[in-house]
Structures are given as C-alpha cells and as structure tokens.
Computed example of a mutant assay.
Amino acid sequence: MNKWLSVFLDKVGLHLLHRKRSVLPQFRNHFDLQSFTAMNRDSFYHVRSVPSLSFELSYHEHYLSGCYKFDSPIHSGDADNENTSGICYLSKRNEEPVHVIMVHGWRSDNLNNFKAIFLKQMLRRNYHVYFPTLPYHFNRTAGGLYSGEYMISANVGRTVTAIRQAVLEIRALIQWLKQHKGGKIILIGISLGGYLSNLISLYEKEIDALVSVMYANDLSFEIWHTPIGRYIKQDLEIHGFTYEKLRQSWSIIRTDEQQPLISKEKILLISGEFDQYIMEKDAKGLWSAWGEPQRLLYPYGHAGIIFNRKQIAKDTLKFIDSIVTEGSSYVDCIYHHTHST
C-alpha cells in the first residue's frame, strides 16, 4: 500500500470517527495534580489484592466461550463503569496453558475487527483468549454518547483515572490467571490497547510476551499534535489549558518514563510509517527509550489494522509461537511489505 492511499484511508477514517464527538464541553481540571505527580508510580499502579472472578460460559466442541466479571479495583464514581467485564474463549486443553489477553482500541463499539485478526488462529493453537472491556467502553459508557467518550477527553483528571483503572484491571486479570491457572501470559494491544499494554509492562512482571500494534507513547502529544485529538484539544484551548499543562498533568501516564519489566527479546512493537492517528515520531520515541526492542514498521497507516490484518496476524503469531515453544527464537525479518527498524 503506497503512502498516498494510506494517508487517504486514514483521513477517511478520521472523518468518520469525528462524526461522533462530544456535544457538551468535557473540560474539567478538578483533581489534585500535585498528589498525582508526587505519588510513586509503582504505588499508583499497584494492585492491592487479586479479585475474585466469576465466569458465565457456554460449551462448544473444542472450547468454551462466554464472559468474566469482577469488581474494578478503582471506583470512578460512575455506576456503569464500576464492574470489570470481558469476553473469553477457553480451550478445553489445560496442560501448559497459554493465556492471550487482547486489549482493544479507543472508541471501539464492538470486537469484530479484533476477533477477525487473531481469534480463529489462537483457538487452533488451543490458547485461552480474553478480551477485556476498557473503562467507559461498550456496556460501561456511563451515559456517554458513544463508546469511549469518557475515557480520553478534556476532563483531565478523569482521563488519568480511567487509564489507571484500565491498567489495574488488566493487571488484576493477569495476576488472577497466574495464581489460579498458571501458564504463560501473552499481552496484545492495538492502538489505545497497545499504549495500555506498554504501560502495563512497566509494572507487571507476570507477562511472558508483549505485542503492541499501532501504539502511542505520550497521550498529550497525540491529543495536541494529531488529527485524532482535534476536538479534545479545542475543548482544552477554549478553557485556557495549554500543552505544557497537559504534558505535566498526564506525565504519570507516559510509557517512556520507565523500562518494561520483561526483556527486550519478549517485546514486539508494530507501527505504521504513514499513520495519521498515531505519529510515527511518538511511536519511535518509545522504541528508542526502551533500548530498541524488536520492531516492525509497516508502510501503512492506521487503517492497516483492518486492511492488512492478515500480515499483522502472521507476524504476531510467528513471534508468539517462538515464545510459547521452548527453545525457539524469533528472528527479525525484512519482508517485502515491511521493514524492520
């Protein structure tokens, strides 16, 4: 896919995305920035106790499917957002389990595209697959006009709380799986899910592999300098909130402030060279800050998540299989459609 077509597809996607936007101003800055910035980052993202999960499952020939639920470790103040839930597909083979946690993107209103990339091939490998519902998405919108409206917005403090909530909920799921099921934990995130997965890897040691696709590093940069944040930036500027204030307020949710707890060899970063949603400059900044782990830079835009999903699946599964299979190793390749960085 050439640059012109990649940029065009992303611009069409952004136009469609912005057809739904907040009608009322979201700006709020009623939170204690000093206490947030003074707090130890490890304490900020610490899971105090492993929750109890409940499952509702249906039986199929080779697997079980259904949902899981538990109480969120963070109280957001919005009743619809207080309970954590997710969809799961569990293999009937339990020896040496592999748990794959897939984190969806911002403003997703269903998981169809995400499932289309990976699910079938994961089930063929007898992996257990989990799709957590992020705060303020799907059935957790808490009265928002669209899925994800309240997760990232000009409400500066609520955005920080929602990011923290997502990190703690997925960390709680990981720790429950390790405690009750054992096996390997594979974390895959796309777009916002990639950013969150990267953030989780800074604090969670029970991750055996991380794949982050079309991820951001610094949300304040993306909101201020990319088309995806146009109306949030507008809301902030109208209320006199500057870029420097936003950077300071959201510093605790940056992903390049620390090193991940897993080794570089267990990380695969995937970016789009012509991405109009997530600037390649921001994605490359994280790669550099993390000591240059394995990275694939596709000659696509953000829309490559959909239009090039077969290649994303191929590269991701090749990497994961090498982690799961003892003694194997992933070798960086220069494909005709990608180039490694």
Rank of each mutant, 00 (worst) to 15 (best):
L5G: 09
L5Y: 11
F8G: 05
L9W: 08
D10A: 10
V12W: 10
L17G: 08
R19T: 14
V23F: 09
V23K: 14
V23W: 08
P25T: 09
P25V: 09
F27W: 08
N29C: 10
D32W: 10
M39W: 06
S49T: 13
S52P: 01
S52Q: 14
L53P: 03
S54I: 11
S58D: 12
E61R: 15
Y63S: 07
K69H: 14
D71S: 15
D71C: 13
D71Y: 11
S72H: 08
H75A: 14
S76T: 15
T84E: 07
E95N: 15
H104L: 02
L111A: 00
I117N: 00
F118A: 03
L119E: 07
M122C: 15
Y127L: 06
V129N: 04
T133R: 10
Y136M: 05
F138Y: 11
R140W: 00
A142D: 02
G143S: 08
G144P: 05
G148M: 04
E149Q: 12
M151T: 01
M151Q: 06
T159Q: 01
A162E: 02
I163Y: 03
A166L: 03
V167G: 00
E169Q: 14
I170K: 07
R171Y: 01
K181G: 04
K181I: 04
G183Q: 07
L187F: 04
G189C: 06
Y195V: 00
Y195W: 06
N198T: 01
S201T: 09
L202M: 08
L202D: 00
I207Q: 03
D208P: 07
A209I: 08
V211C: 09
A216N: 06
F221S: 04
I223H: 00
W224V: 10
H225I: 07
Y231H: 13
Y231L: 06
Y231N: 09
Q234K: 15
D235K: 10
G240T: 09
E244G: 08
E244R: 14
E244C: 12
R247D: 06
W250M: 05
I253R: 01
E257T: 15
E257I: 13
Q258D: 10
Q259D: 07
L261F: 07
G272V: 02
G272K: 03
D275I: 04
K284Y: 09
S288N: 15
A289W: 00
R295N: 12
L297K: 14
Y300Q: 12
I305N: 07
I306V: 14
K310L: 12
Q311G: 12
I312Q: 03
I312D: 02
I312R: 03
K314G: 09
K318W: 09
I320Y: 02
S329T: 13
D332N: 15
C333W: 11
H337D: 15
T338C: 12
